[in-house]
C-alpha cells in the first residue's frame, strides 16, 4: 500500500509540471488548449529518441522543452495570426504532432530500458528508482514553480494575465495581445513537453499514444487542486496545482486498488471533470445567489 502511495506521489509530482502548463492556458489565458495531448507525447518522443541516440539525458530533456515550445508557437500562430478559433487551432497542432512524433521516433514506441536517464545519477547514489523519480520531480517542480511565480509577477507576466482577463483593456493599455497569447501557449506547451520527457524516462518508454486524455487529467488536477487547496493568491494557486496533481494520482491509484478496471480510467476522469466544471450550475440551481443592490455613492 505504501509503495502504491509513493508511486502515486512521484507520478503526481511529474504530472504537476503538466498541470502548471494547463493552468497557464486554461485559467490565465482562458483558452482550452488541446495542443497538450500532442506536446506531451512530443516531449517523450524527443527525449526518448535523443537518449537512445546517445545524447545526455539532460540535453535530451532540454530539447523536449524546446520542441513543446515550438508546438505552442504553432498553435499561437494559427490562432492569433490566421484567426482560427483557439480550440480548433490546438486540435490541428495536436493531430499534426501525432504524425510528427511518429517521424521523430520512427515507430510507435521506443524503449529506454537500461539507458541513462535524468534519474540515473540519483539512483547511483543508492536511491530506489521510485525515490529517485520523486526527488528529481520534486526539485523540478520547486524550481519551475519558482520561475513561474517570478515570471507572472514581471511586466511581461502581468501583460499576459491582463490579456487573459480582459483583452480589450489590455490592448487599450498598449499590450500586443496576440503576442501575449502566443507567449503563454509557448510557455505552457514547453512545460507539458518537459513533463512528457520526464514521464518517458521514469517509465522507460515513449509511446505515440501517451498523450490521449492528458488535457483532461491536467484539468482534473487543476480543479481538484483549486477546490481542495484553495486559490487565494498566485502562490496558493501554484501549491494547489501541485497538490491537485498528486491528489489526482492518489485517487486513481486507490480506485484501481479497489478493483476498477484500468480501461474505465478515462471515463472516470472525464466524469469527474464534467461534474467539477458543472458545480457552479448546480450550486446556483440549489441556492440562487442573493443579490443586494446598494444605492448611493459610486
Amino acid at each position: 500500500m505504501l509503495q502504491i502511495l509513493l508511486g502515486a506521489i512521484s507520478l503526481g509530482l511529474i504530472w504537476a509540471i503538466l498541470t502548471i502548463g494547463v493552468y497557464i492556458t486554461f485559467r490565465i489565458l482562458d483558452i482550452a488548449d488541446m495542443t497538450v495531448e500532442g506536446s506531451i507525447a512530443m516531449g517523450a518522443a524527443i527525449a526518448a529518441t535523443s537518449i537512445s541516440n546517445g545524447m545526455s539525458p539532460y540535453m535530451a530533456t532540454f530539447l523536449a522543452l524546446l520542441g513543446g515550445m515550438a508546438a505552442g508557437f504553432v498553435t499561437g500562430f494559427l490562432h492569433t495570426k490566421l484567426k482560427i478559433p483557439a480550440l480548433l487551432a490546438g486540435i490541428l497542432t495536436m493531430i499534426s504532432l501525432y504524425s510528427i512524433n511518429l517521424l521523430i521516433m520512427g515507430k510507435a514506441n521506443l524503449s529506454l530500458l537500461r539507458m541513462n536517464t535524468v534519474y540515473t545519477p540519483l539512483e547511483n547514489l543508492g536511491l530506489s528508482s521510485t525515490n529517485a523519480v520523486m526527488l528529481f520531480a520534486f526539485l523540478s517542480v520547486l524550481i519551475i514553480s519558482g520561475i513561474i511565480y517570478w515570471f507572472f509577477g514581471t511586466e511581461l507576466g502581468c501583460a499576459i494575465r491582463a490579456t487573459g482577463n480582459n483583452s480589450q483593456m489590455a490592448r487599450a493599455q498598449g499590450i500586443n495581445t496576440n503576442n501575449m497569447i502566443t507567449l503563454g501557449l509557448v510557455i505552457s506547451n514547453g512545460l507539458v513537453a518537459l513533463c512528457g520527457a520526464l514521464i518517458a524516462q521514469s517509465q522507460s518508454f515513449a509511446d505515440v499514444q501517451m498523450g490521449i486524455g492528458s488535457i483532461v487529467i491536467g484539468l482534473a488536477s487543476v480543479i481538484i487542486g483549486e477546490v481542495i487547496f484553495g486559490k487565494r493568491n498566485f502562490l496558493n494557486c501554484l501549491i494547489s496545482l501541485v497538490l491537485g496533481a498528486i491528489t489526482y494520482r492518489i485517487i486513481i491509484a486507490l480506485v484501481l486498488k479497489m478493483g476498477m478496471p484500468a480501461n474505465d480510467l478515462k471515463l472516470f476522469t472525464a466524469i469527474t471533470v464534467a461534474i467539477a466544471l458543472s458545480l457552479p450550475v448546480f450550486k446556483s440551481y440549489l441556492r440562487p445567489i442573493k443579490r443586494s443592490i446598494k444605492g448611493g455613492d459610486l
Partner: peptide, 20 residues
C-alpha cells in the same frame, strides 16, 4: 495596483522587470 501598473507602462516595452 496591478491595473494601475499596467496603465503606468502604456507605451513602454514590457520586459522582465517587476510588474509593480
Amino acid at each position: 495596483e496591478e491595473n494601475l501598473a499596467l496603465a503606468y507602462r502604456r507605451g513602454k516595452i514590457r520586459g522582465l522587470g517587476w510588474g509593480i
